[in-house]
Write a protein that binds this DNA or RNA. Structure first.
Lengths: 203, 203
DNA sequence: GTCTATACGCGGATAGAC
DNA sequence: GTCTATCCGCGTATAGAC
């Protein structure tokens, strides 16, 4: 049984990476099997069908990260510091692990109902709700729920734009640096919430 | 030749809608042919292969919209009014035409290099650049390029989150209304740029 | 320009031996 | 729990008649 658990883990790790890279449809069961160096038929011992494997891979990739994000938001630190730390973490998460980022985005875009429901539940209950709560304590300038959604949108959106920007002249590609984006988003959100206002003129 | 042009148009319209709905891999040439009520083989008279059809469909869906957005940004009106009108238009564009929205997002996520390059070129040259220009004239509180990217990110991100929120309790689903989002984004951006500051407390 | 017919490989999935 | 062998449908794409 110990062996089977680790095979299962290996399958999930390989599948997550492949799905993130090429999409669910772009990765066959044969591809996953090859990455783990087992026969395709063996996958079906661990997962009922491809749909079940996809769901498990999504869960595998997501659940661990959600816990970390939640911890940052609930730490014993000043509110604003927690918010900034969360933004830093989220930007890093996406840019340092593009596979994870794409997997998350894909979950919302390509997911069937079951996958989207899982994604929503995990992310919302684990991270979205505490973030909105923190924002509501920080300021009443903007709606907390919408603002929390805006933070996710900004990080995910900039990440996606960065992929597109690769095909563009240098001056636009400079926009896609994680540090610069992190600073920009913190500044944007901080200013709109009437927190301390760092000025951020163009370099 | 007149007949062939209109068949071509019909193919592009059908293909755009299908691709937006189910993704490029999720839509077969047979599917497209069925939607236009012709035989699959006939598609290959109009488009060399599936890749060519996808690129043409993307172009078909995108080019017209980019012109409209550009016009709004270059209109003879006060800067802030133009910015707000643009945000309104972009939010409406995504929420009233989810097929188009998904197609655009997919272009960035699933596209091969050629598709991403086309997407980047059209959107950047047509809309992104004028938007950044407008922002730079409005305020120097934030970097114009990053802020322009933030506006796209916010609209696209909220749109994607809205799809996920469908599976959630009512109080969160309320966040996904186009009007509310439009107001929120305008407020968020306006406040962060130090424009007139409408307060937007939670309802 | 559209059709019928068809080639051919890849995909998911199962049966059953070891 | 992993293997070999295999089924079968669907996908892209082409040939060639009308």
């Amino acid at each position: 049984m110990a062996a089977s658990v680790s095979t299962r883990e290996a399958i999930l790790a390989a599948a997550s990476a492949l799905y993130a890279e090429r999409g669910y449809d772009g990765v066959s069961m044969r591809d996953v099997a090859a990455a783990v160096a087992i026969q395709p038929a063996s996958l079906y011992h661990h997962f009922k069908d491809k749909d079940a494997l996809i769901l498990a891979a999504l869960e595998h990739a997501l659940s661990a990260k959600a816990v970390i994000g939640r911890d940052i938001l609930l730490k014993q630190e000043p509110l604003e510091q927690r918010l900034n730390a969360f933004v830093d973490w989220l930007v890093r998460l996406f840019f340092d692990d593009p596979a994870f980022a794409r997997m998350t985005i894909r979950g919302a875009l390509d997911g069937n109902d079951q996958r989207r429901a899982y994604l929503a539940k995990t992310v919302i209950e684990g991270v979205f709700a505490p973030l909105a709560q923190l924002i509501s304590e920080l300021s009443d300038a903007l709606d907390p729920g919408l603002t929390a959604a805006s933070i996710f949108s900004l990080v995910a959106g900039h990440f996606q734009l960065a992929s597109t920007f690769v095909h563009l002249p240098r001056e636009l590609r400079a926009l896609a640096q994680a540090d610069a984006l992190s600073a920009h988003i913190k500044s944007l959100i901080g200013r709109s919430l009437d927190l301390a206002k760092p000025s951020e003129p163009a370099p």
